[in-house]
Design a protein around this nucleic acid. Structure first.
Lengths: 344, 344
DNA sequence: CTGAAAGCGCTTACAG
DNA sequence: CTGAAAGCGCTTACAG
């Protein structure tokens, strides 16, 4: 063991609740109650305690609070990849909202694997987080419901009803419908679709939106135009290469996310096809890089940072025992420079 | 207070160290010592305890460990922006290395402001983290030294000697020198430089590298070619616009980071200048998006995920009371498609 | 090598 | 409205 030598010269001597109590001439219980707003306290004692806290510079020890009170003022956040341009924005929203309320997020990455996600939840639980925010992921609905039996849960990316659980669902289908319709309105009929990870609910809904828009416009869905992807830039490159190899004719591409759209743009560039002159391109999510792509990418805005904030606020509400009602913003298309009217 | 109703139907009943002790027929002290490897224990007791732990499914409560032992098995990570494409990779490296050792990272974003960074450190400290990893930032060396007097510190982006502190410094100057020299070797002489945040050490070093390479080649540094930036895509756009407005002649641009290079690429595109046909472009960092830019960006690889891992390992070493010796990889240029020989 | 005991810094029934 | 006391689940000197 490395002995904690504690040359307390720099760090402030730890001041405890007991010291505050003594200085204020009250019992520790009273100080605790004032801190937690747990009971009504006479004004005199309250000011005495407030003053003692201020002059002593007392900061409650969350570790002790956690042990004694069963609340750690931390909430677990199960993300899929902490370094994702997409989830990053959500984490930022969560960090801000939670921090403002004195809660700390504990981030873990599940890497899109249900078993890893379960392990993360175990760790988070052993850390005694007060609640759990799950950013999409592959866990089953019932697994989530079961977690919610012992821990408040907020989950994004699905519609799920359960006690002690709030779900925030963004309308991916509608977003994808808008994206596809935009291309149709520009005169495109041969619109390729690059799909996302097959089992992923977002991917499924986005493909539905694509089909919906085509059908509504009376355009037959040509299976040859639908190619699989994996939500990565590289998979976007491969998808376009496949389309090109097969000599499928298309004048536009709708990719199920921006990362794949960016990959598609590169593959088109390599093939000597210009965006939007030869091929119009639409993505989904509106990640930070899309605005600075060459050309700037037309895409569906996914308010992921806001969703992170909403998720955090919903969690705070659950923890306060309030009913959390959340309204997720509707998707909207951002038309930039990667799309153009056919033949224009 | 929201009463913890504890319908423990789903969650496993909490099993404590005491229960393990009882089942194994030893004292809690012994169980604790086995868990921590704190003392030599007879083989029989050890197996008895191991078995009890296994059958009971005991998981030590880190909160209690934190209170009693003064160690929380968590380390604070002061990043500047959790949603940064750049820091994201470092966080991933940290998460992996720490997690493998049973430690949890506590991430906070300082947003490039010394006062916010200080506040983050206060919060992290109040959370009783066992150590602190600081990813660059604006804190003064002495502030960091002072923190290190009471908490092990690992800091990236500077060279700093102090007890209880390890610094990992990447050679930005050399990287920038290589980038600039690459352009020189391609025949470029009129090489613009887009700088980073002025007070930022990385920015300073990268500019030094630029100047060094030019001087070594006997090329005069034309002040008109050096424009300020702020490490954001938008600032890259502005920088090129400024260059263009001033009618400064240049055949290549070296941007102090990839994000600015990407912004520069967009501004050039808007101005009808093609990369690399009309202007060669080099960035710095090799963030994920650079590989999929159109055209793929030539840049200096910054092994930021690896640096995150190294930082975490150094922290683990400090916590174990070992001497941490770390070797940061040298920078290396990645030539892609945004640079071309002058006149070719 | 191993226990009994005290203690980490709070919270919370339990009694006034 | 407010205290005294027990307890949260561990660790760690202190004694064998």
């Amino acid at each position: 063991m490395n002995r904690p030598t504690r040359s307390r010269s720099a760090a402030p001597a730890k001041v405890t609740l007991e010291m505050v109590a003594e200085r204020a001439g009250v019992s520790p219980s009273t100080v605790s109650r004032i801190l937690n707003g747990t009971a009504v306290v006479s004004p005199e004692k309250r000011t005495a305690v407030d003053e003692a806290i201020a002059t002593l510079g007392f900061v409650p020890n969350p570790v002790a609070r956690g042990l004694a009170g069963g609340r750690t003022f931390s909430v677990g956040v199960l993300t899929q990849a902490i370094d994702s341009p997409f989830y990053g924005a959500a984490l930022r929203g969560i960090e801000g909202a939670l921090g403002a309320a004195g809660y700390s997020p504990l981030f873990m990455s599940g890497h899109w694997q249900a078993d890893e996600e379960s392990r993360c939840i175990d760790v988070l639980r052993s850390r005694r987080v007060d609640g759990l925010i799950v950013l999409t992921g592959r866990l089953s609905d019932s697994a989530l419901r079961s977690v919610a039996r012992s821990l408040p849960v907020v989950v994004t990316g699905r519609r799920l009803k359960a006690t002690n659980l709030v779900s925030l669902d963004f309308d991916h289908r509608e977003g994808a419908r808008q994206a596809t319709q935009h291309l149709i309105e520009l005169g495109h009929r041969r619109i390729a679709f690059i799909g996302g990870v097959a089992e992923h609910p977002d991917a499924v809904e986005r493909e539905q939106g694509y089909r919906l828009a085509l059908e509504a416009a009376g355009v037959r869905v040509d299976p040859a135009l639908v190619v699989p992807g994996a939500f990565t830039e590289h998979s976007g490159v491969l998808a376009v290469e496949r389309l090109l190899e097969r000599r499928v004719r298309f004048t536009a591409i709708f990719a199920a996310n921006d990362q794949m759209a960016l990959g598609a743009a590169l593959a088109l560039y390599r093939a000597g096809k210009r965006v939007p002159d030869d091929v119009s391109l639409v993505g989904f999510d509106d990640v930070a890089g899309s605005l600075y792509a060459v050309p700037p990418l037309t895409t569906v805005h996914n308010p992921i940072q806001e969703i992170g904030e909403l998720a955090a606020r919903a969690m705070l509400a659950l923890l306060a025992g309030e009913k959390a009602r959340v309204e997720v913003p509707a998707p909207r298309l951002i038309v930039r420079e990667s799309t153009r009217a056919l033949g224009a």
